[in-house]
Design a binder for these strands. Structure first.
Lengths: 122, 122
DNA sequence: GCATTCTGCTAACTAGAGCAAGCACAATGG
DNA sequence: CCATTGTGCTTGCTCTAGTTAGCAGAATGC
């Protein structure tokens, strides 16, 4: 009984806190974005409370993450039926992003590949 | 205000009752299959109570329907046919990548945001 | 020094999900 | 004619998700 995806509220909480911090948001800022109270968000992140799907939906919006991702972490959705070869997803997203210059694209891909230890051209 | 998928508990209830009857199950039979109480199932079908995702998951199992279907009916999932093109953002892709550690995720997001000049909030 | 304004957290409460027990009504059949 | 067994539903309760109000500490500025 360590890291069961079901009823693993601590894992979900950790993930939410990471996401919030990586977006440089305070508890109050995210709670307002998501339309929930800040003490409650605090309790969710610490794994003290089990948020409903509605709350997860609003948090997903505030964090600019897909609701499905949070549902999977919360154990109410199976991990994507047709998960494409995970290795190419981030690359595709970077390649398709119109907000990046070509140089920025290349830099991001380099960093990503250094992280995953992948060969540059798959 | 006709058939809004969100907060449309009557529509969900009707659907559940149809499914149950088409499987020729009584309230008690299905409630036992799903591991919930029969009065509660009755109230759900009549749109008096709003079931949680966990309950919907168990009902889906008892009715041999996908949980996603019920989630969509309950308004907690977008009708996500398959091709997710619009919102396949770099952020989502990075967040969902299981090959990254949490620190790496945060680092990549930082860099990405510095590139796009995105205000972390918004 | 001490206000102010952030940060996250605790405490006390309200509303509603979900439960067990039991009711009313039909249909059986002894 | 009554007992049984099935159906769905009502009542009253427990427990917890989610709330508002307020607290302690760190960082700013007067």
């Amino acid at each position: 009984m360590s890291r069961n995806p079901l009823n693993d509220l601590a894992g979900l909480g950790d993930y939410l806190r990471e996401q919030r911090l990586s977006h440089r948001l305070s508890l109050r800022q995210l709670s307002e974005l998501a339309g929930i109270s800040n003490p409650y968000l605090s309790q969710i992140e610490r794994g003290l409370k089990r948020p409903s799907a509605e709350i997860l939906q609003q948090l997903a919006k505030g964090l600019e993450v897909s609701a499905e991702t949070l549902y999977v972490k919360a154990g109410i959705l199976e991990h994507h039926p047709e998960a494409e070869s995970t290795t190419s997803t981030v690359r595709d997203a970077i390649a398709a992003d119109p907000n990046l210059t070509d140089r920025q694209r290349a830099t991001l891909l380099d960093i990503y590949e250094s992280f995953t230890g992948a060969d540059p051209q798959r």
